[in-house]
Design a protein around this nucleic acid. Structure first.
Lengths: 152, 152
DNA sequence: GGTAGAGTGAGAGTCATTCTCATTTAGGAG
DNA sequence: CTCCTAAATGAGAATGACTCTCACTCTACC
């Protein structure tokens, strides 16, 4: 973990450098909080997970980090913005399962076979509509364990 | 189209009735505007496409229609809410292609094979995480024809 | 044709997010 | 080490999509 954290910092610093941005203490705190959580975090969760991080700084730095491709913005169904480390950094292509009741978002891996089918579909649709498709996003919507238990 | 419009109205009226809601003139205007557009529409587009529809009424009626499953709310990447006829009404299971540059969202059909793979994936992931998955959403992100032309 | 309850609409209110700007900090030049 | 310049910070104001309020209107049923 020690080693991984250092490697992470190195990559983030590099990504920020290409945008002429510094890797400050607060940005480091945000990145490590996201890395530790392992699922998309809301601003509120980030503020709770860090020390002395003002809201305005959190928003500003997340915008900078998103612009440098360190972080990705995920918009949930509840209107709250959520953030996670970019796939380039985490090295982990995944999709999301969201709870329509409480808004919880967790990561989910997919099979190579599904990914192949998705890529093929993306290619066909892009061709048919004049789009240049750069990314696909799969979202499974349902109810999480906790909400299912509570609703019964 | 005459016939189709009448059938649409009948179904909408039925769906609203189960929620003890009326099918008023303004709701009809909204439904037909959505049917005519054929892709998710923003509030602004709806206001432009209808006569004398105040913003507050639009929002309120869209909430009612969404609650009655006549309409589905789609949250794009640009933070604007978009609305389309529900799959139950349009009878058309489809996914979305969104332009990351201008926010345009269009519909796209998928192949039965991809749908089967998606359903299987959803089942596996649901099982592994204690979720009950009721719906899946696939979003292809890229640049539309117009934005590609403009950016060159 | 009365009336109870649903629908309407103009404007006020809410709240996540963004902007402003005075102050602090970081990092290179000398 | 000490300037110096530009970036970063943070408290609060501003923005804007969306929701709520409430007086008024309409509709369906008696």
């Amino acid at each position: 973990m020690e080693r991984a954290a250092a490697a992470l910092d190195g990559e983030v610093r590099l990504l920020l450098a290409t945008r002429e941005q510094r890797y400050t203490g607060q940005r480091r705190e945000i990145v490590h909080a996201l890395a530790g959580l392992g699922r998309p975090a809301t601003i509120a969760e980030l503020l709770a997970a860090t020390r002395d991080l003002p809201q305005s700084t959190a928003y500003r730095n997340l915008a900078v980090l998103a612009d440098a491709d360190v972080v990705r913005r995920v918009s949930g169904p509840d209107g709250f913005a959520r953030f996670e480390l970019s796939e380039a950094l985490s090295g982990d292509h995944h999709h999301h399962v969201v709870c329509e009741s409480c808004g919880l978002v967790i990561d989910a891996a997919t099979s190579p076979r599904l990914e192949a089918a998705l890529a093929e579909t993306a290619r066909l649709i892009a061709e048919a509509n004049g789009f240049e498709v750069t990314e696909h996003r799969l979202e499974l919507v349902g109810r999480c364990r906790r909400c299912r238990a509570a609703a019964c």
